[in-house]
Simulated scan of single mutants.
Amino acid sequence: MNGVWDAQRRALGSFIRDQRRLARLSLRQLSALSHISNPYLSQVERGLHVPSVRVLSAIADALDLSAETLLEQAGLVREQAGPRPGPGSRGETGDDRAVERAVRADRRLSQAQKEALIAVYRSYVESASPPEHAPDLGTRR
């Protein structure tokens, strides 16, 4: 089990470093934006420490990511397996979740753009789904 945690810690650090580089921030700049010490951030990026939820949240804010994204990368939150029904929705399918995962993973988009795209996608999917208890009008005459 220790090997799994070590790999997860290194993967999280690598993900944070990649996101920082994509944002074109130095370690010092991320430190200033997140109010986390430069040496500690360096250790997190190298996989030497598992940061607290507070630290992950501060890093996420500084990188314009959702805290949920970093928590998933840290292995602290698993992606929801079941459907997430919304108003008038019959719930999500595996395809729906795959689309949302792809949008969330696109590093070219800001967090606000990702949320907007997902909201639009969900609205289209919900409007395309037949109501749960709609009468079958084709069989009545």
Rank of each mutant, 00 (worst) to 15 (best):
A102L: 13
D106A: 14
G75W: 06
E45S: 07
R122V: 03
T93I: 11
R78Y: 02
V103I: 14
K114Y: 07
L117K: 14
S129I: 05
Q111T: 00
P51T: 05
A128C: 10
H49D: 00
L71P: 01
A102Y: 12
A58M: 06
Y121F: 09
P39D: 02
V50T: 13
A7Y: 09
L76S: 01
D106K: 11
N2E: 12
V77G: 00
Y121K: 06
L30G: 00
D6I: 00
E132K: 13
T139Q: 14
V44I: 13
A119K: 11
S31R: 02
L22V: 12
S89F: 08
A102G: 08
D136N: 15
D61G: 13
T93C: 10
A11E: 09
S42Y: 09
S42A: 07
I36L: 10
A7V: 01
S66Y: 06
L109W: 11
Q80D: 07
N2I: 10
G82N: 12
L63Q: 11
L56W: 08
R9I: 02
K114D: 06
G86T: 00
R108D: 03
P85F: 15
R141A: 15
T69P: 02
A105R: 14
F15N: 07
V99Y: 11
R90K: 08
Y40Q: 05
R20K: 11
R21M: 09
A134L: 13
V44M: 05
S123V: 09
P39T: 03
M1S: 07
I59C: 09
R28S: 04
L41V: 07
S14C: 05
R101E: 11
R10K: 11
D96W: 10
I16T: 13
G86F: 03
V44S: 04
R97G: 05
V4H: 14
E126G: 07
S37H: 04
Q29Y: 10
L25N: 03
Q113N: 05
E92S: 10
G75D: 07
A32G: 02
G91P: 00
P131W: 14
G3H: 11
P131N: 14
